[in-house]
Design a protein around this nucleic acid. Structure first.
Lengths: 245, 245
DNA sequence: AAGTGGTCTAGACCACACA
DNA sequence: GTGTGGTCTAGACCACTTG
């Protein structure tokens, strides 16, 4: 469906700290257009006087807005309203069990395949390794008994040895990894694909049905931990992302 | 294609401030698994002693990690390693011209339709208004002369009056809005659709081709500014998102 | 009741970029 | 040089929560 999302929750009136009041005041001056992109805003020293506070407090408010991308600071020159170039959005990829449960539906999954092997060419490419043992886990996620998503995953056993002995018949691999492995970075790729006969059969959709495909490569400092590809039937699934400055 | 992305750029060795050293130390203890999720970490006072610095400096480092979702703080109890529940990722939605140009390709666009009208039922739903004038702008974006994306947009003229007189024959609507309107919030919806005959014709793909559809609703405090739907031919397009905790 | 984090102060020194 | 922001200090009071 094509229903617009709810309006953003009004920002909590909250026990506003002075730092937040300064921050919000400036945000509003920028949003309203009163302070145009490129404008120099008052120096920290001037804001100290205006809000009758210490420089540290002003500094915290400004630092927050810099991290959000609303301001830019240049030494000796001052602080400027940033010129926007991109829409940034924050997107949540919960694990499947959490995602389905939060929809108020009953979650279940089938482990379709579990293969331990030496890395194939494709595995080596995804995990950026020259060789080594990997574990492939394919499973189908259900919501209220209906196929929800198909997932195929490769785990680098050299980095996650515990996966060798883990049982994935009760706990889905995504959950297990969440609890057992920390990652320092991840990259996602979101694309649209046409269901082939195999995917169509698994997800119970017609051939050619447009599906949303999410791929994720996960790193830890020491190397790549896992590669996962998730496929959702398009008509019933959509990702949601929130603005994030 | 299904090529894995490049490894994340190594974090700049940078002129590390003390605050950052503390932050990085703690990050590494968490990432390595030495401090498991749920663990209480040392009190601010203990960290002051360890790093021989003021409490403010420790506090800044911890506040940063809280905002990143790596730590949770409870008064009177202490600071704890957060238990992860979702993968968060940051995704950029540049405007089409920027996006295509950054790919090193030549950008061009055609304005297909420009309609000023009283809001229809669909417009009212997307903009959450009871009535009022809207502007619909449909256009086709090209990269190196090849169709890149189809875009249909509705602008709330009550909030963006300047759009009435703006010319959209040289500058694409997305760019124009970037420069003229600030938003305070936006919601995105990403889904997969099958090309119908009309979309297939515009994007030069076969019927049923899976396409990636991105919808965006944009707010300012005072109301909804615009709704836009962008459709990319699936095989040639993918969104990329970075981990962001 | 006690001790945590939340917030703030009124200074300070420094590096850097600009004039 | 000069003045900006970057960073840090050594305190302080308070609210909250939890033992």
């Amino acid at each position: 469906m094509n229903t617009p999302p709810d309006a953003p929750a009004p920002t909590a009136p909250a026990p506003t700290s002075l730092k937040d009041r300064i921050r919000i005041d400036i945000e509003e001056l920028i949003m309203s257009g009163e302070w145009q992109p490129g404008t120099r805003i008052p120096y920290e020293h001037e804001l100290m006087l205006k809000y009758d506070c210490s420089r540290m407090t002003v500094n915290k408010a400004l630092a927050f807005l810099v991290e959000r991308g609303l301001l830019e600071r240049r030494k000796r020159a001052g602080t400027f309203v940033a010129i926007p170039t991109v829409h940034k959005a924050l997107i949540d990829f919960p694990d499947m069990r959490t995602e389905v449960t939060e929809l108020g539906r009953h979650y279940d999954f089938d482990l379709i395949r579990r293969i331990e092997r030496e890395a194939t060419a494709a595995d080596r490419s995804h995990l950026a390794i020259a060789a080594g043992p990997v574990l492939q886990l394919d499973c189908l996620h259900f919501a209220d008994g209906t196929p929800y998503a198909y997932e195929t995953r490769i785990i680098n056993l050299a980095l996650v040895e515990e996966a060798r002995t883990a049982r994935f018949d009760r706990e889905p691999p995504g959950c297990w990894l969440f609890e057992h492995v920390r990652w320092s970075d991840a990259r996602h790729r979101i694309s649209a694909i046409n269901a082939d006969a195999a995917i169509g059969g698994l997800l119970a959709v017609r051939r050619e049905q447009a599906c949303l495909q999410i791929e994720r490569w996960t790193w830890r400092d020491t190397g790549r931990i896992t590669y996962v590809k998730q496929i959702h039937a398009g008509e019933t699934y959509a990702l949601r992302a929130e603005f994030r400055n």
